[in-house]
Design a protein around this nucleic acid. Structure first.
Length: 103
DNA sequence: AGCATGACTAGGC
DNA sequence: AGCCTAGCCATGC
């Protein structure tokens, strides 16, 4: 466990419903904008332990990084249930659903 | 300490 | 828009 690791968990829990945040966004708020890889690690490690809104975490391209059959459909469904629209390929409009801690 | 892995990101073609 | 390469951070053996 590291301070950064704990920060990331907190940040993810701060993501409001109906919005999404990128790994870089979370990593930045956590203190290390370069720790995007660590964010993914947190989800793997805590998503099964803590109650984290992992489905609100996507890549900078605004798409679900999970592979088909590996959770892709699951995350897509959870996002749709929160009112987040996805493209045919799972693309999300970060300009519309992107989480903005400043507002 | 060194090597390998991962739900990433930015730049080039 | 899609694919490939290089860089970064933390974990596990």
């Amino acid at each position: 466990m590291t301070p950064l690791y704990d920060r990331i968990v907190k940040v993810i829990q701060q993501i409001p419903t109906g919005k999404v945040a990128t790994y870089g966004q979370i990593a930045h708020l956590a203190g290390n904008p370069r720790a995007s890889r660590t964010v993914s690690f947190v989800l793997h490690s805590s998503s099964s332990k803590l109650k984290l809104p992992w489905h609100r975490v996507i890549n900078s391209k605004g798409s679900i990084s999970l592979p088909k059959g590996g959770g892709f459909e699951k995350q897509r469904d959870l996002l749709l249930k929160e009112g987040i629209a996805l493209d045919e390929k799972g693309h999300i409009d970060l300009k519309r659903y992107g989480w903005k801690p400043v507002g």
